[in-house]
Amino acid sequence: MDYLIQQLLNGLMLGSLYALIAVGYTMVYGIIELINFAFGELFMFGAFISITMMVDSMTIFGQEVNFPGLHFLLAVPIAMAVVAGMGVAIDRVAYRPLRNAPRLAALISAIGMSILLQNVAQAMFGSSQVFFPDIGMFTGDNGLPKYVTISNAQITYLQIFVVAVTVLAMLILNFFVQRTRIGRAMRAAAQDKSTSALMGVNVNRVIAITFIIGSAMGALAGGMYGAIYHFAKPDMGFIPGLKAFIAAVLGGIGNIPGAFLGGITLGVIESLGAAYISSEYRDAFAFVILILLLIFKPSGLLGSHISEKA
């Protein structure tokens, strides 16, 4: 029983990170039906920019550059803002010119963007792992993380913090999309771009806002990921990006609560699969689930409105 609880907690924490990235995928897909493969890289930049804000100096493009050395709680919002800007720029440069082109063209542009960003990061920060500084808040005097014990299962304060931040982010986001004017414009544009444009919605602005929010969420996930695993690396976004994409499809792509549910589900299934079946095939579980889902419930767990649209 303790064992099961521990594995569920492991899965919950992993799933929270997937969920944060999945939101970006799902929002952008919901509105322009494009899978923005560059989200994995925005996630990566989120982690790197958080690091630069937290350290005193760092080597960038081979030059020693001085940085402010801020607290984690300040560094991550800055990273989110910078990455949000990058998200908008990517849309402007790589996707907006292709808005009316065949969808395949935009998809290829997204893949190209992803490779480009990875190479830029490699040129900037080098190709090996960079240490993500300890965030300080949840570390004991012995240098190891503080934890609580729930019936013999351990969970660190940091893991609780990550899950709490994820839940909070999802609630705020859901409120924003359901209850605000811009949120309503987003939902309208997602259903029918040309009609909502006729109703006075500035569709390009709505898309830009979508990219801002999605990218900021990716950067938030990157900061959290770095805090937990203590590293950043130019290719770190690839696998989490893929998993988040699966989480988004699992929850029903285009659906925000679905992305959250999909992320958590995926994390838990991975942990339980590794626990009870085999850790060797851990990554395979995610893909097996994707295939099964596409066969039996292509619209995802909560994603009925996709089929209406199509």
């Binding site: 695993y229 626990a275 850790s279």
Partner: peptide, 20 residues
């Protein structure tokens, strides 16, 4: 005895098994 994939970052599942 547990295995992981090169490049993974999360080993909690395997380590929970090991702890058993």
């Amino acid at each position: 005895r547990e295995q992981y994939t090169t490049g993974d970052a999360d080993f909690n599942s395997q380590l929970t098994n090991i702890r058993q």
